[in-house]
Amino acid sequence: SSRIYDSIKEMIDKETAELYEKMDDRIPEIAGVDYKKILRRGVPSEECLLEIDKGDYDLVVIGSHGKSGLKKFVMGSTAERILKKSPISVHVTKVPAQ
């Protein structure tokens, strides 16, 4: 039903807004470095690669949770897919577990 869809969309939008607020607090303001926050829906690695292809970027910085073994095999690694297919440099940084 559309009420369920609207409810789920509302929850996702609220969580996204909260994550963006946290990100704003954590990203230092470095003179001369521009960055963008872009929200896209879909398969994360595919959406990121589409944005890379259409944008004018020098570097992609992406966090990785460092999954390994069975979890990585079953779910794959978004960072790894982007790293393999990106036409520009990619910096992968480990995201601490919370």
Results as ranks from 00 to 15, higher is better:
14 K>A: 11
9 K>T: 13
94 K>I: 03
45 S>A: 12
64 S>F: 03
91 H>E: 02
37 K>I: 07
12 I>L: 13
84 K>A: 05
76 G>V: 03
25 D>W: 07
96 P>I: 02
22 K>Q: 12
47 E>H: 00
91 H>L: 09
59 L>V: 07
94 K>E: 09
17 A>E: 15
89 S>V: 00
92 V>P: 01
31 A>V: 06
17 A>C: 06
55 G>H: 04
82 I>W: 01
14 K>P: 00
57 Y>D: 00
2 S>H: 12
83 L>R: 01
26 R>L: 13
41 R>F: 07
51 E>D: 12
51 E>V: 08
14 K>Q: 12
35 Y>N: 13
21 E>M: 09
52 I>H: 08
26 R>D: 05
65 H>A: 12
38 I>R: 13
93 T>D: 03
47 E>F: 00
2 S>I: 11
33 V>F: 06
19 L>P: 00
84 K>M: 05
90 V>L: 09
41 R>N: 08
93 T>Q: 10
67 K>W: 12
56 D>K: 15
59 L>Q: 06
82 I>E: 01
66 G>P: 04
20 Y>F: 14
63 G>C: 05
8 I>Q: 13
82 I>L: 03
40 R>E: 11
26 R>C: 09
6 D>L: 15
49 L>Q: 02
17 A>T: 05
64 S>R: 03
55 G>P: 08
34 D>P: 01
9 K>W: 05
89 S>K: 10
44 P>K: 03
75 M>Y: 13
1 S>M: 10
21 E>A: 08
13 D>E: 15
97 A>E: 10
93 T>A: 10
56 D>L: 05
56 D>R: 11
46 E>I: 06
9 K>E: 15
77 S>A: 11
80 E>N: 12
76 G>W: 06
68 S>Y: 06
40 R>F: 05
15 E>T: 14
67 K>Q: 09
93 T>W: 03
26 R>F: 08
41 R>G: 07
4 I>P: 04
16 T>K: 15
67 K>V: 05
14 K>N: 11
71 K>I: 07
87 P>K: 15
60 V>Y: 00
80 E>D: 14
50 L>F: 06
27 I>P: 01
80 E>H: 13
57 Y>E: 01
15 E>G: 14
60 V>H: 00
52 I>P: 01
78 T>Q: 13
29 E>H: 10
95 V>T: 14
45 S>F: 14
81 R>I: 02
7 S>F: 11
83 L>I: 04
18 E>N: 14
55 G>T: 10
39 L>F: 06
40 R>S: 13
85 K>C: 06
